[in-house]
Amino acid sequence: MKAIETTATINESGQLTLDKSLGFIKPQRVRVIVLLSEDDETDPDETPTEVVIEGIRQGLHEALTGQTLPLSEMWSGIDAE
């Protein structure tokens, strides 16, 4: 048996919708374990809204003031196989 961790949303009908495809070729039955957060529990993978907004502000400021790199330079020094 193989375990895969992903995220999903439960709709009003109680059905799960995966956030992205698992990429399997053939349809098959699976076992599902659902982990629900408590009301006072925060998701460790969730970036706080304040951090996201600050990142957007910083990116916009850099774009407006010309503090950008050409796309060709962004890959400089990255070794891809």
Rank of each mutant, 00 (worst) to 15 (best):
M1F: 02
M1W: 03
K2T: 11
A3V: 13
I4G: 01
I4N: 05
E5Q: 07
E5R: 07
E5H: 08
T6M: 10
T9W: 05
I10C: 09
I10Q: 15
N11L: 04
N11A: 08
N11Q: 10
E12W: 06
E12L: 05
S13A: 15
G14M: 09
G14K: 05
T17I: 03
D19N: 05
D19C: 08
S21P: 03
L22I: 03
G23A: 08
G23P: 06
G23T: 06
F24A: 03
I25G: 09
K26T: 07
K26C: 03
K26D: 08
P27N: 13
P27T: 05
P27C: 02
Q28L: 09
V30H: 01
R31M: 00
R31Y: 01
L35D: 05
L35K: 07
L36Y: 07
S37Q: 02
S37W: 02
E38F: 02
E38K: 12
D39I: 14
D39S: 12
D39W: 07
D39A: 14
D40V: 03
E41K: 07
E41R: 04
P44G: 11
P44C: 06
D45L: 05
E46Q: 15
E46G: 01
T47L: 04
T47V: 15
P48L: 15
P48I: 02
E50A: 14
V51H: 00
V52E: 00
E54D: 13
E54I: 00
G55I: 00
G55D: 01
G55K: 00
I56F: 11
I56R: 01
R57K: 12
G59V: 01
G59I: 02
G59A: 14
L60C: 06
L60V: 14
H61L: 11
E62V: 02
A63D: 14
A63T: 12
A63V: 04
G66C: 14
G66N: 07
Q67W: 06
T68P: 05
L69A: 14
L71Q: 10
S72M: 05
E73P: 01
E73V: 02
M74H: 11
W75Y: 11
W75Q: 12
A80G: 01
